[in-house]
């Protein structure tokens, strides 16, 4: 079964191109052009890995990261950023990010990291997937 990835970035072209490149490499990619859309999707869907741009309109990446980890504890999230500062990286890791990658991205490195984090740690039982499955079972 392919790894399910949610890619969140405010640039539609970036989403289109990177999702196609990941799909070519066998990933099942869903895209969201804003943090709000992503958070909405997570109410009904679950993903093995989330790729999140650090600089987003409305809600910045760290705020979104906090909300995502609150919503889906144990969710594997890799941050993408145009400028990785040590302070932001440390803050992101403290908030639960599995890794931080600087743009422009090396696709081989990204693929390695997605595969590594997707297989390294299963989501906690309280994850969205768990609730999703529970909800499905209880719904007549």
């Amino acid at each position: 079964m392919s790894i399910q990835v949610l890619l969140i970035d405010d640039d539609q072209e970036f989403l289109d191109v990177l999702s196609e490149r990941l799909a070519i490499r066998g990933f099942d990619v869903t895209t969201a052009v804003s943090s709000r859309i992503a958070l909405d999707r997570l109410k009904s869907e679950s993903f093995d890995v989330i790729l999140l741009d650090l600089q987003m309109p409305e809600m910045d990446g760290l705020q979104t990261l906090e909300k995502l980890t609150d919503m889906v504890p144990g969710q594997q999230i890799i941050l993408l950023t145009a400028h990785a500062t040590v302070a932001k990286g440390v803050q992101a890791m403290k908030l639960g990010a599995a890794d931080v990658l600087e743009k422009p991205i090396d696709i081989r490195e990204l693929v390695e990291k997605i595969t590594k984090v997707a297989t390294a740690k299963k989501p906690a039982p309280q994850s969205g997937k768990f609730f999703h499955q529970l909800f499905k079972k209880r719904t007549p």
Partner: peptide, 28 residues
């Protein structure tokens, strides 16, 4: 300058992905 350099990096990231996609399509 911080904001502008960020904008340039984002542009480079998209150029990089498009160039990579060209390579992927050729490889396919």
């Amino acid at each position: 300058t911080a904001s502008i350099s960020h904008e340039i990096k984002n542009g480079l990231a998209i150029i990089n992905e498009n160039a990579g996609l060209l390579g992927d399509l050729v490889a396919l």
